[in-house]
Design a protein around this nucleic acid. Structure first.
Length: 564
RNA sequence: GUCCCGAUAGCUCAGCAGGAUAGAGCAACAGUUUCCUAAACUGUAGGUCGGAGGUUCGAAUCCUCUUCGGGACGCCA
């Protein structure tokens, strides 16, 4: 159902190859102004080749385009404006959706190949902050979108469960910790200890050395260190799983940094064999001079490993176990240097698959224009935000639809949907200033707006007793009033494809808002349930919209209640 | 200092494989419910697309320079 391609092929024939098929497809555009038709072809390029005025060329072309797909071809200046045959196209689209249901717009670009997605990755013993929300939500949406395009996503929660921070935490716990208090409120207590550590370290820098020493012990298998670490980890995971359940996110693997503890020797060995390891200030590094990057630190002067070491081990492990076609890292953009180094080192090691690794960066969640810092206790907790959002949704239901049967369930879907959608609707590179007010807005370009549109459409179908039978006959409508909605329905697969290629869920979020807006306008203009011979066609349109809105929201990780 | 991002309406942002008059939402103002859920819809107002050059028939979009904001730059992750 790609009419752009169809037009390109017609033009290619007519022009006898003056412009390649590929270029033609790029030149054909979708006019912003509906009065300019559904597709347009600017002929400037031809004017140069043919040495005729653009307007003359356009006039000539108009005569030569003969296809039932286009009901009208107009020339305006140097533009060829084409109008699709509304009846033919609309019925094609609507029937395709009725037949394929949620499989509509599914594609098989990926051919079932594996794509690993490193995402979420919260730090153990720290609260799940708004910052981690972004990686979780973006990663989850990318997984769903690429799956729709025929890839097999493998979601990996690369838990931050290893590193010097645990040495610091153990130090702090041994100095000031209270077992009972930690048991009662693990995350909160551990966070308090972590903050206290950094406060105290300001005046007594030797604490930092103690922290590093404890981490070294942990890495060397010291029993006391390991027991504490295991305890912190278990408690943290319990807390995290509550949030993941709330957001409906699941993982294929929880192999975090600690998982690679026994796999790092091999990396170091490989680097040595390839003579890439250099000593520098008692530390082991890989120089990246030709790449014009700073050196990548592999081992600290005390022999302990670093972030990069673990990520190298993880990359090797993932390649060997999942044989990925692509390996994505949904991690904040402040870490882009790290990933450049990582890929550079792997390339130096001779692994050509390093080029299949992609850092998918995103902007930061800011508070008062500044980065949030766990060390200074400047965090906003995701769980609190989600709960507030759910409460707000619940309040709205009480006000607007008090007879709704499953209020709590719907409040959860709407509240959580609002938070997720708010994160996904804009380009992921934009920094987001944290604002509860913004997040809890349920009007305009928001998740609840789209959900509400879906609920209204579902309501029409219920009352209109719509049954999705496969219809092989024509509808008695001209599809004039429906056209805006139809032309958007056609674009669903394009939006998905773009989102998948650019790892950019906001393409789908924007699409779904556009469709909801178009439908709401239609809803205000046309009374579907009024008896008319056009009703069957209109119900088919409403049904099509519900299918696409629901699927679009699903691809973002947002649920769609049928009533709200 | 080097590198990476960003700058479009009062606010939050679309548009950025160059195309026809730069679009939404929020906020403001004025309206719409005997009729499919008003979490909606309609209308008014709001802009030298940070600045300066360049490429082009055509630039918010591409190139160069520049200003401002954010981030990263070896023993944190």
């Amino acid at each position: 159902m790609n009419f752009k391609k169809e037009l390109a092929e017609i033009l290619f024939e007519v022009l006898e190859g003056a412009i390649s098929l590929h270029d033609l497809e790029l030149l054909i555009e979708k006019p912003k102004n509906q009065a300019h038709g559904d597709l347009a072809f600017p002929v400037f390029r031809l004017a140069k080749i043919k040495r005729k005025s653009p307007n003359v060329i356009a006039q000539e072309l108009r005569e030569q385009i003969q296809s039932p797909t286009f009901e009208k071809v107009e020339v305006v200046g140097a533009y060829l404006n084409l109008f699709l045959n509304k009846k033919l196209v609309s019925e094609k689209v609507v029937n395709a959706i009725i037949n394929k249901k949620n499989q509509f717009a599914s594609q098989n670009i990926g051919n079932g190949s594996n794509v690993t997605i490193d995402m979420s990755s919260p730090n153990i013993a720290k609260p799940f902050s708004m910052g981690h929300l972004r990686s979780t939500v973006i990663g989850n949406a990318i997984a769903l979108i690429i799956e729709k395009c025929g890839y097999k996503p493998i979601k990996i929660n690369h838990l931050g469960d290893w590193g010097t921070q645990f040495g610091k935490l153990i130090t702090a716990y041994k100095l000031w910790g209270d077992e009972e208090k930690v048991k009662q409120n693990p995350i909160k207590e551990l966070l308090a200890l972590y903050i206290k550590f950094h406060e105290e370290a300001e005046s007594s820098p030797s604490l930092e050395d103690d922290g590093r020493a404890w981490f070294k012990k942990l890495e060397d298998g010291n029993e006391e260190a390991l027991t504490l670490w295991q305890w912190f980890r278990d408690e943290s995971l319990k807390e995290f799983s509550k949030i993941y359940q709330l957001m409906n996110v699941e993982f294929d693997s929880y192999a975090g940094e600690a998982f690679y503890n026994d796999k790092m020797d091999r990396v170091v060995q490989l680097l040595e064999e390839k003579q890439l390891l250099v000593e520098s200030d008692q530390a082991q590094v890989v120089e990246l001079l030709e790449e014009e990057l700073p050196p990548c630190l592999i081992k600290k002067s005390d022999g302990a490993t670093l972030y990069a070491t673990r990520d190298l081990a993880a990359a090797l492990y993932r390649k060997e176990n999942y044989n990925f076609a692509k390996s994505l890292y949904v991690v904040g953009h402040e870490q882009s240097l790290h990933f450049k180094q990582l890929i550079a080192v792997l390339t130096k090691m001779g692994y050509d698959w390093a080029e299949k690794m992609v850092h998918v960066p995103f902007g930061m969640m800011l508070k008062d224009g500044k980065k949030m810092s766990t060390r200074k206790g400047k965090v906003v907790l995701l769980e609190e935000v989600l709960n507030e959002s759910i409460a707000m949704a619940r309040h709205n239901i009480e006000e607007k639809n008090p007879n709704l049967p499953n209020k709590d369930e719907v409040a959860k879907q709407v509240g959580v949907g609002a938070v997720i959608f708010h994160d996904l609707k804009n380009n992921r590179m934009n920094d987001i200033e944290f604002s509860l007010e913004e997040m809890l807005r349920f009007e305009g370009e928001t998740g609840p707006y789209v959900q509400y549109t879906y609920a209204r459409a579902c309501s029409i179908l219920r009352k209109g007793k719509w049954e999705a039978v496969v219809l092989d006959h024509a509808y008695s409508t001209s599809w004039e009033k429906e056209w805006k909605v139809i032309s958007l329905l056609m674009e669903f697969s394009t939006a998905i494809k773009r989102a998948s290629e650019n790892f950019d869920p906001s393409q789908v979020a924007k699409y779904v808002v556009d469709l909801a807006q178009a439908f709401n306008k239609y809803y205000a203009e046309v009374k579907v349930l009024e008896e008319s011979e056009e009703q069957k066609a209109r119900l088919a349109l409403v049904y099509s919209v519900t299918v696409v809105l629901k699927e679009g929201l699903r691809l973002l990780g947002v649920q769609a209640p049928e009533e709200m």
